[in-house]
């Protein structure tokens, strides 16, 4: 693979990071089997999942925030000279 081109190097680098992080998430999920996590959600709802609860909160929460942020960006972005008119 020719990594001298910036975009190719970038993509290869990012892909490796993604695989590494995905592996890390799986490893942490596995650790929940040995150290069951404790969260306040278990007090308020007995049906709340235990294994992977923190991964779930982080992942699902961000999947809600990210599109909403992008929508807000689309609504709120203006030209740099907006206030100079």
């Amino acid at each position: 693979m020719n990594v001298s081109h910036p975009n190719k190097a970038h993509n290869s680098y990012v892909k490796r990071l993604i695989y590494l992080l995905a592996g890390g998430c799986l490893l942490l999920l596995g650790m929940d089997l040995f150290h069951p996590p404790h969260s306040p959600l278990q007090h308020s709802s007995p049906h709340a999942p235990v294994t992977g609860i923190y991964l779930l909160i982080s992942g699902v929460g961000l999947l809600i925030i990210l599109p909403l942020s992008r929508l807000l960006g689309w609504l709120l972005r203006r030209r740099e000279e907006f206030y100079d008119r």
């Binding site: 993604i18 890390g24 998430c25 942490l28 992977g52 992008r70 960006g73 709120l76 972005r77 203006r78």
Partner: peptide, 26 residues
Amino acid sequence: LQILLPAMLLFFLSLRWFQPQRGLLL
């Protein structure tokens, strides 16, 4: 770590979504 790693993973997965853009935000 369970809070941070999925966020990092999502960051790299959504890199194209949040490229620097010109303009100001209201």
